[in-house]
């Protein structure tokens, strides 16, 4: 018996979201009194791999020969490794790639799946259940899994990274039949941008910005904070900002430590996408804006005047710390 965690690398490197997933899987392995095996697919370095031991992996399998991402091929590698390791629970990130992988792995292993997990499983009296977000952030569901093998895909920013372990041993893993049918033509990564679903700090703006020409004020604040930028649906619908930045029920759900909403009234669909943010700051010139009802800190004022002041204050704070 074991717990297996699939760890996604970005251009050969593991990021914080990967450490979250390993830490989470380690906690499940502890719950079950068993070992955690990590699996990496694609090229990376031995240092990166053995470093996963710090977060609780006792062994790291390296399927280094597959490169370009294809959910079908990757899923068969993960399923094969899970079977070889006798994994009872298989854990991965509920990332864009993870969303394509976990369902395939679940079908291969005839395993129940919880995608979008936000807490550790409750395991008692033969029952195994996991809390996940549901109704686009408007609710949570405790989902029980009755299959022998269970697959869990963990939301970003839902579990704290825990380190303290030591370097893990690395072994090559050759999968029997992983053939990629999807040809990757091009990968475009904005290296200077912070990925929105994983961001710890998010600066988001709405129609209150009056037009795309004023977005430099939003970006200046985001830069000063080291935050990702986001927007409301009307803003992406109007083409002021790309769809990838649209946060809300039909866009991306985020759960950062800090969400700053500027000139966004707070429609129920938008609130759904941000409700699991730890701290919410709302800046709006309308004191009656519904967003204030769910905010931790509120500022009534014109975004054009408030934003430069806030950016200066953040820079001053960063300068002294």
């Amino acid at each position: 018996m074991s717990v297996l965690v699939y760890v996604e690398n970005v251009q050969g490197q593991f990021k914080k979201s990967a450490f979250e997933v390993v830490s989470y899987a380690k906690a499940i392995a502890d719950q079950l009194n068993t070992n955690l095996v990590a699996l990496s697919i694609g090229q990376t370095t031995n240092d990166e791999l053995s470093n996963l031991g710090k977060y609780g992996a006792s062994k790291v399998l390296n399927a280094g020969s597959l490169n370009a991402f294809d959910s079908q091929a990757y899923a068969s590698v993960i399923a094969e490794a899970s079977q070889k390791e006798g994994a009872e629970v298989v854990v991965m990130a509920n990332s864009f790639s993870g969303k394509g992988l976990s369902p395939r792995v679940a079908v291969k292993l005839k395993a129940g799946l919880v995608a979008g997990a936000v807490e550790l499983p409750q395991i008692a009296g033969g029952k195994f259940s996991v809390k996940k977000s549901a109704y686009s952030g408007k609710a949570f569901a405790q989902v029980s899994l009755s299959s022998a093998v269970k697959v869990i895909a963990l939301n970003a920013n839902a579990y704290q990274v825990k380190d303290g372990g030591s370097a893990a041993s690395v072994a090559d893993f050759q999968a029997a039949n992983a053939v990629s049918k999807v040809k990757v033509k091009e990968v475009v990564r904005a290296t200077d941008k912070i990925s929105l679903p994983e961001a710890e700090l998010v600066v988001s703006a709405g129609r209150g910005m009056k037009g795309p020409e004023n977005w430099n004020l939003v970006e200046n604040l985001a830069d000063a904070l080291g935050a990702a930028t986001a927007c409301s649906k009307p803003v992406s619908d109007a083409g002021w900002r790309p769809h990838e930045e649209h946060v809300g029920q039909t866009g991306i759900a985020v759960s950062p430590n800090l969400y700053i909403a500027i000139g966004i009234s707070g429609a129920i669909q938008h609130l759904a996408g941000v409700s699991s943010s730890k701290t919410i700051v709302v800046i709006n010139k309308d004191p009656e804006a519904p967003f204030f009802k769910v905010a931790d800190y509120g500022i009534v004022g014109d975004a054009m005047e408030v934003l430069p002041k806030l950016t200066e204050a953040v820079k001053a704070y960063k300068g002294q710390s």
Binding site: L113, K138, F140, V143, L145, V294
Partner: peptide, 20 residues
């Protein structure tokens, strides 16, 4: 059937907004 929803909950209400 491999999974079932046991129970739902709604997010805990936030404490009152602090105006700055």
């Amino acid at each position: 059937q491999l999974s079932a929803v046991e129970v739902y909950e709604t997010p805990a209400p936030r404490s009152a907004v602090k105006m700055v």
